[in-house]
Amino acid sequence: MPPRTPAQPRRRESSRIAILDATRDLLGEVPYAKLTIESIAARAGVGKQTIYRWWESKGAVVLDALLAASESAEGTGIELPDSGDLTRDLKAVLRATTAEFADPSFSAPIRALMIEIIADPALAALYQEKLQQPTHQAILTRLRSAQHAGQLRPDADLTLVIDMLYGPLTQRWLLHSTTLDDAFADALVDGVLHGFA
């Protein structure tokens, strides 16, 4: 009789999924400050040590839970639309970003993560590796395509373009200074591209 395939990897994966699901559910029910590893473990039906085997901190669990939700909604990997019209594509991306920032279920945990990142270098490195760098690279790829197509100046500093697109958006979001909407996203794209076209 052939040996049975061990079920351990399947159990591990189902536990990981249960933890990420529990984290997202709890984020919708309690403020980030009241979310605990104990409450996540209880909701997921696992021991605390199971969580600490995979994640070093609550912030790391929350980051992975948000990334997993984003991947299941959009598919794996980050890729910007490329219709051939850079203005249209960037407006679509910035509109989606402002919509996320305006959604309390997304905005509240990300805002709390930003606070933790300031004091936690390990979480900051994780955030850069899993979210900031892949996003930056995807935008850079789209901007390079536009540059090769003659839609951006050949000498345009593409990293500066990204900073100018996302800097004002992030500042307004962090400071709650004004409503984030499609009109703001469109004006931001128009203003930045005017300087680099």
Rank of each mutant, 00 (worst) to 15 (best):
L90E: 02
A42I: 06
E74Q: 14
L80I: 14
S83A: 00
E71A: 14
A102V: 06
L80T: 13
A60Y: 02
E100A: 13
S72R: 15
E79I: 05
T87S: 07
E56H: 14
V93F: 00
D25G: 06
K91S: 01
W55A: 00
T23V: 08
T36W: 09
S83N: 01
A96C: 05
V61P: 02
D89F: 04
V62G: 01
Y32G: 10
L27G: 00
R24C: 06
L35R: 00
L63A: 03
A73M: 12
P31N: 03
L63I: 07
L66N: 04
G45L: 00
D21H: 14
R53A: 12
K34G: 08
D89L: 02
R88E: 09
E71D: 12
S57K: 05
S83R: 02
V46P: 05
I78A: 01
S57P: 10
A60K: 06
S72Q: 15
S72L: 11
T76N: 12
A99K: 07
A73R: 13
W54K: 12
D103H: 11
K58L: 08
R88D: 06
K48F: 02
E74Y: 14
D85Y: 01
E29S: 09
I40T: 03
K34I: 12
P81W: 01
R53H: 15
A73K: 13
S39D: 02
L35W: 04
A33F: 07
A41Y: 02
L67P: 04
R43Y: 01
V61C: 05
R88F: 05
R43I: 10
Y52Q: 14
A69E: 15
S83H: 02
E100N: 13
A22T: 08
E71I: 07
V61D: 01
A22Y: 10
S39W: 07
L86C: 01
S72F: 09
P104K: 00
T97M: 14
S70H: 15
A96L: 10
L80K: 11
V46K: 04
L26G: 00
T76Y: 13
D64T: 08
A92N: 02
G84K: 08
L80F: 15
A42Q: 12
Y52A: 06
G45F: 08
T87F: 05
A73P: 08
I78W: 08
V93T: 09
L67C: 02
E79T: 13
T23E: 05
S70D: 14
Q49D: 13
S70C: 11
D64W: 09
D82C: 09
Q49W: 11
G84I: 06
I37T: 11
S57C: 05
L90G: 03
A33E: 11
L63Y: 09
E29C: 08
A68R: 15
G47L: 08
R53L: 11
S72C: 04
A102T: 04
I78M: 12
A92C: 01
